[in-house]
Computed example of a mutant assay.
Amino acid sequence: MSDDAIRYDAGHIQVLEGREAVRKRPGMYVGSTGERGLRQLVFDVADRAVNEVLVGRASRVEVTLTADGGVRIADDGPGDPFEDTGTAGAPGLETLLTRIQTGVQPAGRHDVALGYCGMGPFVTNALSSRLTAEVRREGVSRVQEYSRGIAVTPTTRSGPATGTGTTITFWPDAEIFGTATYSFDGLEERFRELAFLNRELDISLTDRRRPVEARTVRFRFPGGARDFVAFLDERAGAPVHPDVIALGWEDRRIAGTVEVALRWCHSREQRIRSYANCRPTLHGSTHETGFWEGLTAAIDAYAREQRLLAASDAPLGTDRIGEGLTAVVSVKLDQPEFHGATRSVLGGTGVRECVAQAVQEHLDSWLASHPEQAAAIIDRISGSSAAPVATGM
């Protein structure tokens, strides 16, 4: 091997920054250059609008797939100024669209990150052939145009404004995404899920790509996790008991809130969904482990207290208790301890202990005050002979 072939020094290192880095390696920022990546473009813009609703500055979010291949995301908040400083000292809209947000941390309980990395609209702008930002504020509408992450016009007054808000419309760059197209169902699933987890959220998704088949779906669920369980149960067969068992509380020990809802149905499948700060989490996360510990302790104790199980019977395990069970376990923490870059597994022993205690105490009380439904649950569990098929993890 020649010296030229093995010579390597700092001069061989190529440093890519900002929009250049995003366009060179788009998969690192949006996951793929296919449909998954297109969804992430939407989520990186929708994050800002959704959080405007969750903090009370806006009442709704509207997402539209336009006939010309673009995506429009609008809110009715106060309208983000284009200057460097926006609402509550946050970066202005132009800064969000042109500068990567370094040092991104896991969102606190009052913030929502819809997608993969949560780097905001900068990535969407860099990967769009065209982007238009419109701000309606103080009776005036102002617009700025971008191309592949670079502003091509100054902020311009476009006329009087009715109401307030921010609208961002973008067209994914065909040089990056080729012929990939959006899946309405994929967007619908995530926005519906988000509305279940945030009962104050009001969001609509409209598809105008084929005018003769235009459709709109609105997501708003004041019942929160209780409504989520009822939705998951729609194809699960008849419920064992009519009531969805639901509990929610705030715990200072974990600096956060917990919401749990559950019901048993006449099926063999488990339908367990767990979330931390609105992110789907995988089996092994501490809040899900705590849920199972509290659930099994309460069910086993009640069955023995009511002599629905004999003293000689083996303890009821999660395989039997989980058969036919639908449950949603959601925690929102100020300082979540995620494991791994994808933030799909939640750590923290304190979370496990708090969730287990709360679930056991609440279920103890519910079972005691609903003896007929409790008996039906125990009868369903004690009659289970085979391990369930787990779904929805």
Results as ranks from 00 to 15, higher is better:
L262V: 05
S274I: 01
R215K: 15
E234C: 08
V260R: 01
L262P: 01
Q270M: 05
P211W: 13
R253T: 12
C265M: 00
Y275A: 01
P242I: 11
N198V: 06
C278Q: 11
G223Q: 04
I203P: 02
D227V: 08
R273P: 06
G256Y: 09
A236R: 00
V217Y: 00
R271Y: 15
D202V: 14
L205I: 05
R235P: 00
A236K: 01
E213L: 04
L262C: 09
R210K: 09
D202S: 14
F219E: 00
L247Y: 14
D202K: 10
R253F: 15
P239K: 07
R226E: 14
F228E: 04
A230F: 03
A225I: 04
V212W: 13
R271K: 14
C278E: 09
R279G: 00
F228R: 03
V212H: 13
V244P: 05
D227M: 06
P242K: 05
G224R: 00
R263A: 07
R235V: 13
G256I: 12
A238C: 08
A276M: 06
P239Q: 04
E213H: 03
R279M: 09
L232H: 11
R220W: 09
C278H: 12
E213R: 05
V229P: 04
V244N: 04
Q270Y: 03
V217D: 04
R252T: 11
D233M: 14
R253M: 12
P222V: 08
R218M: 10
